[in-house]
């Protein structure tokens, strides 16, 4: 018990720092958020036009209502699982400031994790509740009945947390890689585009050819976005949910292992010049 207490006492200041950073740069945060929401609205208008032009009520099994929920919950999931806290790790290796992290009695990735948690708490309070409420009000207005199911919502939260962990460790690994590819703008663009495609954020995996969809479902990217969104929408059966939780946990463990491996070998080869 005291160990857990000490653990949280060690990392709490990082969370506070993350929150303060978020508040200090709130204009950046709000502009960024508005920009991202606009992208979701473009998708909404495109899909509305698709359903207007189509003879049938559904598009490959999705109704307009499903599509709206899909677009906005995907946006929310992507926003909540976005992780760039560990992005600086490559830079810190280059300029040697990583040494300062190594002499502290705490794990380097936990520092990043708790710092990001701080900024995440702020964005949860600002966007999570309004977004879910907005989607549910829309659903109520369209169907005339409450479609919100607390059970699926809670399972979604669990899946979202697992997705965040995958995203976090994946991006720590990417932070190490960024150290080799100096062009951060180009590589980050490639990474983010590929991840959003492979995770079904642009095109639902259900719309892809079945062979490709099956492969993408197993890759870690589907666990980042598609899985939690499908659970929220109640599209998965109990056995599918259990299976996808298992898969998500599997990918958290794998990403964690890879991070530790890279960290160890980086530390062994690290030599920081002077001071």
């Amino acid at each position: 018990m005291s160990r857990i207490k000490r653990f949280f006492r060690t990392y709490k200041p990082f969370t506070r720092a993350g929150m303060q950073e978020m508040i200090a740069y709130r204009a950046n945060f709000i502009c960024h958020l508005i920009g991202e929401i606009m992208a979701a609205f473009i998708m909404y208008f495109v899909w509305k036009a698709v359903f207007l032009s189509s003879d049938s009520e559904t598009f490959m099994g999705f109704t307009m209502e499903d599509m709206v929920v899909y677009i906005f919950i995907t946006f929310l999931t992507g926003y909540m699982t976005y992780s760039d806290g560990a992005f600086a790790v490559g830079e810190e290796i280059i300029d040697g400031s990583i040494a300062m992290r190594m002499i502290k009695p705490c794990s380097f990735e936990m520092c990043f994790l708790f710092q990001e948690l701080g900024s995440r708490l702020i964005s949860i309070s600002m966007i999570f509740v309004p977004m879910v409420a907005g989607v549910e009000i829309y659903r109520y207005a369209v169907c005339g009945e409450v479609r919100f199911q607390i059970g699926y919502f809670l399972l979604y939260i669990v899946s979202l947390l697992l997705a965040y962990m995958i995203s976090f460790y994946f991006n720590v690994c990417y932070g190490f890689m960024a150290f080799f590819f100096k062009n951060l703008w180009g590589t980050t663009l490639i990474k983010e585009t590929l991840v959003s495609f492979l995770s079904g954020a642009i095109i639902p995996l259900a719309f892809m050819p079945s062979g490709l969809a099956a492969v993408l479902n197993i890759l870690p990217f589907a666990s980042l976005s598609y899985t939690p969104v499908m659970i929220y929408m109640g599209m998965y059966s109990t056995s599918q949910i259990l299976w996808s939780f298992g898969l998500q946990i599997f990918w958290v463990v794998v990403m964690y292992g890879v991070t530790k491996l890279i960290w160890r070998s980086a530390v062994r080869h690290l030599s920081v010049q002077g001071g």
């Binding site: 100096k182 062009n183 703008w185 180009g186 590589t187 980050t188 663009l189 490639i190 585009t193």
Partner: peptide, 9 residues
């Protein structure tokens, strides 16, 4: 390489 990565992205 920088240029190539940006353009490919």
């Amino acid at each position: 390489v920088d240029f190539l990565l940006g353009a490919i992205g």
